[in-house]
Design a protein around this nucleic acid. Structure first.
Lengths: 143, 143
DNA sequence: GTGCATCCTGTAGCGACTACAGGATCAAGG
DNA sequence: CCTTGATCCTGTAGTCGCTACAGGATGCAC
């Protein structure tokens, strides 16, 4: 709290950064290793020192991951949102492409859900003469 | 085609097994390593020799994978479908549990799809004052 | 000064493959 | 008989996105 050591009032050690961002410490170091996060300055003893900008970036990364973006996509988004003030169009392209991926996964999962749901429901679990689950997988009868 | 060497008319080398099952050769060897597939007998020179039962098992595995079962789940299903003639109930339990996983993934993906879709649609991609995609991720404006 | 929390590096593990390298064997044609 | 090319073998390492150690060095409070 000393007003004298004012030069960097908002410095964060990695544990603080982890708490506030909701990203695991090991994961933060991993992000640094794979160059998703810039390597921060260090104290004389070698500890990482972060600032609020790092926190914002990390939260951005976390949210992007929750939305299912890959680290590569996030790297691209970070570049686009960065100082080179790239075009909104490119951001939109990445997001739209990702949306298509999601939709196709959604489609597959739905088909799968229907198939499994009807099959499981046909399976009484008791004394059925044959098991519909193994049946759709075509291997052999239960019991 | 000789009727004399009749003892094993339906023997398959790994390449044939791969072709007919639609499972990559390397993956077949991997399945053997992780004990999903029994280790087959070998020729005198060490080449694997499969039979039609292996083909059926492999097709079963492939279909199960397409339905999103993990290798562990498949291992369990194979045990249940095996010679110990286990209960249909257990099969149903595995499948039902897997169905719940699918449904929760489905739910998450749907939410995500809605969020991304509306966001992307709000992004003209041209001269928008700020980019809604980066906006929901809350980092900074485009352009 | 003593303990405990926090931090460091480096390595290995997960799941489910895939991709080599570097060599052996097979079957067919000349 | 010999060569060619396809197929096969083992073993290791890479992929993605972390996570989990081991084994040690600091920092800070009492």
């Amino acid at each position: 709290m000393s007003a004298i050591t004012s030069s960097r009032a908002e410095a964060l050690p990695i544990g603080q950064l982890s708490n506030r961002s909701g990203v695991n410490i090991e994961t933060i170091r991993y992000y640094e290793r794979v160059k998703l996060l810039p390597a921060p300055p260090r104290t004389s003893s070698g500890r990482r020192v972060y600032d609020p900008t790092d926190l914002r970036i990390l939260v951005f990364i976390r949210r992007s991951r929750e939305l299912g973006f890959s680290l590569d996509e996030i790297r691209a988004l970070l570049r686009l949102g960065g100082p080179e003030k790239a075009s909104c169009r490119e951001v939109r392209e990445i997001a739209a492409h990702h949306l298509e991926d999601i939709r196709s996964k959604l489609h597959d999962l739905k088909k799968l859900e229907r198939l499994l749901a009807t099959t499981v429901s046909r399976c009484s679990g008791r004394t059925a003469p044959d098991c519909p689950v193994l049946d759709i997988l075509d291997i052999q009868r239960c019991k």
